[in-house]
Nucleic acid binder design. Structure first.
Ligand SMILES: [Mn+2]
Ligand SMILES: [Mn+2]
Ligand SMILES: [Zn+2]
Ligand SMILES: [Zn+2]
Lengths: 157, 157
DNA sequence: ATTATAATGAAAATGGTTGTCATTAACAAT
DNA sequence: ATTGTTAATGACAACCATTTTCATTATAAT
């Protein structure tokens, strides 16, 4: 209920308009679902969750909106190895919640972790700086994932 | 010409037989292509490159062989965002050549880098140890990628 | 209210990857 | 070297997440 001021004043509206994008019901609904979610949703997951509040939405629109959100940097798109893209809000209104992922290659379970993030971010910054210089590359983002077997899958063997 | 002893003595044969896999012409050809490649090949790239030395190979076999190789840990499978999987030999006979990737989100160019690898690996080991303990997760692998704009794409704007 | 055009949704198309199945090849046993 | 067992192969079809098309609708500037 915070940051919602009867249409037209959500935190991301500014960013949208600034880039020439229009604010639509479909986009509001999709962002609403994303901000409520605590898992990593697929396009179809979102499509289904949006239905109750906007029954006429098309899956195509979900895909297109997600593209826009990824472009704007509001949403991250991931490949966790289960054959479909997974999406996650980059940051809520209250600020970023930077984390990386631990992925079970057997059951595809994904764990968000923030432990050790400080040291990681520190090293990443240094590395990014060095790489930018050496390869004349403008780094905008990074991806860190650990793969292995979760407790359940490990015990099962 | 090293490590090749007239069929039956390539460095990876042991690993293959140990797991009950048979050694076939198709597999030899695919591994040959992979070990000669200095880029990141797609399944179709491999299919095309294998043709001259083995014209009857099917694309299906390429996919299946790659699955086996990934399973055995001889090959890494990557998603660089160009809609097709990319494959790379994990290590040659002379030993590993551990590196990470720098990916241009515009032109999809991929740069292998080994700079800072030592520090990264150091931190990764620590992190892996901590995460393994906390989440009871058996970590077997990691993925680190930096995204951004390469020099050409950056200047173009 | 008018207008320009971005956004939408239904449907079809795309294309990388996987499944099917009859045939062939690898290799252990003889 | 020959045979038998069965993994591997390749042609082809199927799968399915994602994209394209296009006529219609909604947004927002004027
Ligand atoms: Mn996450
Ligand atoms: Mn590489
Ligand atoms: Zn698991
Ligand atoms: Zn580029």
């Amino acid at each position: 209920m915070r940051n919602k001021d009867c249409r037209g004043h959500l935190w991301w509206h500014g960013r949208f308009r600034g880039c020439g994008y229009r604010i639509t019901l479909a986009r509001e609904a999709i962002l609403e679902v994303l901000s409520r979610a605590n898992q990593h949703l697929s396009a179809e997951d979102i499509y289904i969750k949006v239905h109750p509040m906007y029954p006429n939405i098309g899956l195509t629109t979900v895909y297109r909106t997600l593209d826009v959100l990824v472009d704007l940097g509001l949403v991250f798109k991931f490949d966790f190895g289960d054959k479909r893209a997974r999406y996650e809000l980059a940051e809520g209104p209250k600020g970023a919640h930077h984390h990386h992922h631990l992925i079970c290659t057997n059951c595809k379970r994904v764990i968000d972790y923030t432990d050790f993030i400080d040291e990681e971010v520190e090293l990443l910054n240094q590395t990014e700086k060095g790489l930018s210089k050496k390869y004349n590359f403008m780094i905008t983002n990074h991806l860190i994932q650990f793969y292995g077997l979760c407790d359940k899958c490990n015990n099962k063997k």
